[in-house]
Nucleic acid binder design. Structure first.
Lengths: 118, 118
DNA sequence: CTAGGTAGTTTCCTACAGGAAAATACTTCC
DNA sequence: GGAAGTATTTTCCTGTAGGAAACTACCTAG
């Protein structure tokens, strides 16, 4: 009676598990959701704007996380030819598809607080 | 003209950001979603069952992650008085409220693969 | 009495995440 | 000429997440 019986061994489960890993990998780290959330709220923000909006983040992390997000086409980076050079960060159309997911996260978190508190 | 102008300084944003941090904190780590997903699929699994289902996890991590999830009332742990002692892990009613969130994660990840692949 | 199954805990190690602070480079205001 | 603003990069350091492997402990079937 050898046990192998894998619930997760069905193709559909494998695909879902992989998809969840992909998503979490893309959105990994302490700051990605903050950055994305901020850019969804106020489209078109400069680097220093983001520093001011996102409480506690350092320039190194912001820079790195923005690069990650840009690589995954969730955020766009546009260098403007202004007097002092300015960079404009914005959510892409594709990045905006994360809104329902972010809403679910927020919804669950809020409900969690209520269930703990009340 | 000092810039402070915080988009994120509204109470509603603060609450949402905090809620997202809470959620991500509770579901942090490499394995939580795998464990939760597995327990949602096949309710009532033993420790060794979970080891077999979750490819690559070690006993230390499984044990620790299950403790975390139990502490947050997402998973229940029941010791059964069987011949060789057996422990039964299951999703709680509360843990099941994560299903929509997990679905969003999977949905987005699947869509991501498609958009990358073409 | 030994092999194998149950459910973990403990120890040791490494790699990476992330923070603080300084450096870079260029421009404009006064 | 110096302060202040733009946008990073670089360096150095620390804590923790997580993996491998061994160990505990108890039970049962052969």
């Amino acid at each position: 009676m050898k046990k192998k019986a894998k619930i997760n061994d069905t193709p559909v489960c494998q695909v879902r598990m992989q998809a969840i890993s992909d998503t979490m990998s893309i959105l990994s780290g302490k700051w990605k959701f903050h950055i994305l959330g901020t850019l969804i709220e106020g489209s078109k923000l400069g680097f220093m704007d983001l520093m001011r909006e996102i409480d506690g983040i350092g320039s190194k992390m912001l820079s790195k996380e923005l690069q990650d997000l840009e690589m995954n086409h969730l955020v766009s980076r546009t260098v403007l030819d202004t007097k002092p050079i300015t960079v404009e960060y914005a959510i892409t159309e594709y990045g905006a598809t994360l809104a329902p997911l972010i809403n679910e996260l927020a919804k669950w978190g809020i409900q969690y607080r209520q269930s703990v508190h009340g």
